[in-house]
Amino acid sequence: MATSLDEIADLLTSAKLHFTREEKFIFVGYEMDLYESPDKTGGIRLIIACERDGSLVSIFAPAAYKIPVGSGVRKFSLVKHCLNQFNWELTGAKYEMDDADGEVRVGLDLILEDAKLTERQLMRSVMLVLTTLDNFHLDFCRALEDDVPVASRAAVKKTVGAYLKKQFKS
C-alpha cells in the first residue's frame, strides 16, 4: 500500500493544516481569494480520499459549482465547452461535470502505485486545486451566469488582431 488516510492526516498535521477526519476521507476547509461557492460564501471544502488500496489519492472540491437542473441543453453545452477548454489549458487539475445532477467538480488524482506520498507532493496538489478554482472562477461564472462562452487564446488573438487592423488602418 502506497499511502493511507492516517499517513495523509499526519502530513496535513505536519503542514499545519486544519482538517476533519471521516472514516473514508478527509475534509480540508479553505478561505478562498476569488472563488465563491454556490451558496455565495468565500470558502471551499476539499475532500482527500485514498482509493485502490492507497495507490491513488484523489483530491477534489465536490459541488464546486452546480448547474441548475432544467437549465436546458444550450446551457449544458456552453458549460461543457467551457470545462473542455479549461481542461485543455490545465496541467494536473481537471474539471468534471456530472450530467445527471449538474454537479461540477475540480480536482486531481495522484497516481502513486508503490511510491511514497510526501508532504510537498500533497501540498502542491492541494494548492493546485485551489489556485485552479481561483484562476478560472471568473470565466466560469461568465459562462454559467451570463452565457458568455470562454474563448481560447488563439481565438481571442484572431479577434483582437482583426480589431486592431481595422482600428489603425488609416
Binding site: K157, L164, K165, K169
Partner: peptide, 23 residues
C-alpha cells in the same frame, strides 16, 4: 504607440501579441 499600431495594420503577418501590448 500609434505609429507602431499603424505599422502593424499596414504590414502582412504582423505580430498580434506585440500589437495588443502596444494597444
Amino acid at each position: 504607440l500609434e505609429e507602431g499600431l499603424k505599422l502593424y495594420a499596414r504590414i502582412k503577418d504582423g505580430n498580434v501579441m506585440m500589437a495588443a501590448d502596444m494597444a
